[in-house]
Nucleic acid binder design. Structure first.
Length: 184
DNA sequence: CGTTTTTGACCCGCGC
DNA sequence: GCGCGGGTCAAAAACG
């Protein structure tokens, strides 16, 4: 599990921090894993990103759940196909969390507006689509239950907020943890 | 009464 | 071109 304390996360985002915050503040939620979808390239220049999208490597740290790798890459369900919106301003990084939780709606500090719900082929579970409800911010997230283990919830974030979390923690209740919720 | 959810329709890329 | 899978729109309903 790679969470970063202090203010130098490896990636210019604060998802880990928020999720950690969430996990710490919700006793019934045990954070299990997170992954970085490494097909993301922060330069639009790489045209290859399109052709390699289907081969994105998305693996959980424990590597025990074939969430979307290898054999099933054809219907890789975390791969958002994207041609979608990346063009409009670039989506930014995608990162997925796998969280053991009974609740699928978790407060990560941002306000989200649900804009879609879909059943996906490879899973009996529904996938929910959310968009950040802050004006001008097009960060999206999608939430679905792990098809293998129903007690896990998979949350995928896409993009970078252009604003601070309304829930920004300037002072953490846990003194040694600094949540750096700003970036860029 | 403004905001969010619901839900089917619509759209788009891709493989055949 | 068509169908499928998956993502988004949008109108109406629900919510507070």
């Amino acid at each position: 599990m790679d969470f970063y304390f202090g203010n130098s996360p490896p990636y210019p985002n604060n998802y880990a921090h928020n999720s950690l915050n969430m996990a710490l503040s919700s006793p019934e939620i045990a954070l299990s894993d997170y992954l970085m979808l490494d097909d993301y390239v922060d330069h639009q220049d790489s045209r290859s990103s399109q052709s390699t999208e289907s081969s994105e490597k998305a693996t959980f740290n424990d590597a025990t759940h074939g969430f979307s790798t290898g054999a099933t890459s054809k219907n890789n369900n975390i791969n958002c196909k994207n041609g979608i919106n990346e063009n409009k301003g670039g989506v930014g990084p995608r990162i997925a969390f796998r969280t053991k939780s009974e609740l699928e709606i978790m407060d990560d500090g941002y306000k989200w507006r649900k804009y879609g719900k879909k059943s996906v082929k490879s899973s009996p579970n529904l996938r929910n689509y959310y968009k950040c409800s802050s004006g001008g911010c097009s960060v999206k997230k999608r939430v679905e239950r792990d098809r293998d283990d129903y007690s896990y919830v998979i949350t995928t974030y896409e993009g970078v907020h252009n604003h601070e979390s309304p829930f920004t923690t300037y002072y953490s209740p846990i003194s040694f943890v600094h949540f750096d919720t700003t970036f860029k």
